[in-house]
């Protein structure tokens, strides 16, 4: 394989991973903000509807998902520095030595 093929091969993997983490997580965060607004009600929303408590629960779930994603990101950075890698072989991320 030449450099160009190798670069394109790497590029689409980076694109795929980045779409999930870099656009997906912010979207989940956005759902969190939206749910918070739903929970708060009143001036938080354009239509000034009454607050719905379920919104706060949904928001908490969304923010937890985002935090988990960030924790995963930090683990990847730290692990590679210590000669280990995060493996997705068992779906759940696990630490393996490189």
């Amino acid at each position: 394989m030449n450099n160009l093929a190798l670069a394109l091969d790497g590029a689409w993997k980076v694109l795929l991973a980045s779409l999930v983490l870099g656009a997906g997580l912010p979207m989940v965060f956005a759902f969190g903000v939206r749910s918070l607004a739903l929970g708060a009600g009143g001036s938080a929303e354009v239509d000034h509807a009454k607050g719905q408590p379920i919104g706060n629960v949904l928001a908490a779930i969304c923010f937890l998902v985002v935090l988990a994603g960030v924790a995963l990101g930090i683990t990847i950075v730290v692990a590679s520095g210590f000669g280990r890698a995060v493996s997705f072989a068992h779906v759940f991320p696990t630490l393996v030595s490189k």
């Binding site: 590029a11 980076v14 694109l15 980045s18 779409l19 870099g22 656009a23 912010p26 979207m27 965060f29 956005a30 759902f31 969190g32 903000v33 939206r34 918070l36 607004a37 708060a40 001036s43 938080a44 929303e45 354009v46 239509d47």
Partner: peptide, 29 residues
């Protein structure tokens, strides 16, 4: 790649928070 991901992320975020007051989203984000 970075530009495409950011553009999509931005578009999704604004879709999701449509209807939420701007002041509320500014602090949240």
């Amino acid at each position: 790649i970075a530009g495409a991901v950011a553009a999509l992320g931005t578009w999704l975020i604004f879709r999701v928070v449509a209807g939420v007051a701007e002041r509320f989203t500014e602090t949240g984000f």
